[in-house]
């Protein structure tokens, strides 16, 4: 923790960065929240621990921060994947972000939005980036952690085993709950569109009403727009007030991207994006 604060202070004092997006302790609660450090005193409030679940990369594309000088960001390996994806999609300039990479030993599962049970978060199971792939400064050490079984993969397989009608019923029951609060979209580092398709009114492609039909198109199209882009930070599922298993959609799309195109999001800074390119050998057995 001290190492992080010292580094932050140094960066702020010698004007390497304009501000640092990091975590601070929630007021007495057993949780942390995003915090913007602008001076040395602020830097002393920065923390990093297993309660730092948020993916702070979401702030990098916000107009309050983007293009306003070099931004420092405290980032776990998974957050760095989002940053890499943003650089790959030309959303942020590589030279305008200073990554304070954190060696990460897993974040806790934020059950019921409080940390009553401190199990490892789903996204941390089988994590390959506990040391970030890209950083300007690296802080902390990794240690061996006990990983529970990957239940998400199992859940997806269970749904895949159902017939089409039952798959529909499963998802219909999930989407019916949606209240269109757009927490999934707002918290997603890759949902940076200035105007989201669901907010477009002329023509209105996706109904903004929170009835099952409008919810169905919204959730499907969001999953599609994130396919090959979602880096699997699981923030959308964490924040969903209605507990819709959004990771089951996003992970499924990642699995398809891997299987069909051997492509993973958030890995390469300069290769073309998944749907931004093509290959003459792409599968077409489903096309008559």
């Amino acid at each position: 923790m001290n190492e992080l604060r010292e580094k932050a202070k140094e960066l702020l004092l010698n004007n390497t960065v304009k501000l640092i997006i990091g975590y601070a302790n929630g007021n007495g609660h057993n949780r942390t929240y995003p915090f913007i450090a602008r001076n040395a005193a602020d830097a002393n409030r920065l923390v990093f621990n297993e309660y730092c679940v948020n993916n702070l990369a979401v702030y990098l594309t916000r107009k309050e921060f983007k293009g306003k000088g070099i931004i420092g960001i405290v980032a776990k390996g998974c957050d760095v994947k989002a940053i890499i994806q943003l650089i790959q999609e030309n959303q942020i300039n590589k030279d305008e972000v200073y990554i304070i990479g954190m060696n990460c030993n897993g974040a806790v599962n934020q059950l019921d939005n409080s940390f009553e049970k401190t199990t490892l978060a789903q996204k941390c199971i089988n994590c390959t980036v506990r040391t970030p792939a890209l950083y300007h400064a690296l802080i902390g050490t990794t240690k061996d952690i006990e990983e529970p079984a990957d239940t998400l993969g199992e859940k997806i397989k269970e749904v895949e085993k159902l017939n089409a009608d039952s798959r529909w019923d499963f998802w219909e029951a999930q989407f019916e709950k949606c209240i269109k609060c757009y927490a999934c979209r707002q918290v997603c580092p890759l949902c940076y569109c200035e105007q989201c398709i669901v907010d477009k009114t002329v023509p209105r492609w996706i109904e903004s009403s929170a009835h099952t039909r409008g919810n169905f198109s919204w959730n499907i199209i969001r999953a599609f727009h994130l396919s090959g882009r979602c880096i699997g930070c699981g923030e959308c599922e964490r924040v969903c007030p209605m507990d819709i298993p959004l990771s089951m959609l996003n992970r499924k799309m990642s699995i398809i991207a891997k299987k069909e195109f051997d492509y993973s999001a958030g890995v390469s800074l300069d290769s073309p994006t998944l749907v931004g390119t093509y290959n003459m050998k792409d599968r077409q057995d489903f096309i008559k």
Binding site: F35, K180, C181, A183, S209
Partner: peptide, 25 residues
Amino acid sequence: GEICLGCGQCAFVCPVCHCFDIVDE
């Protein structure tokens, strides 16, 4: 306000928030 991401979670789970929008379908 600077860390608020601008979702509607707070208003939609609130027992008394009552703002609504009107759209034609």
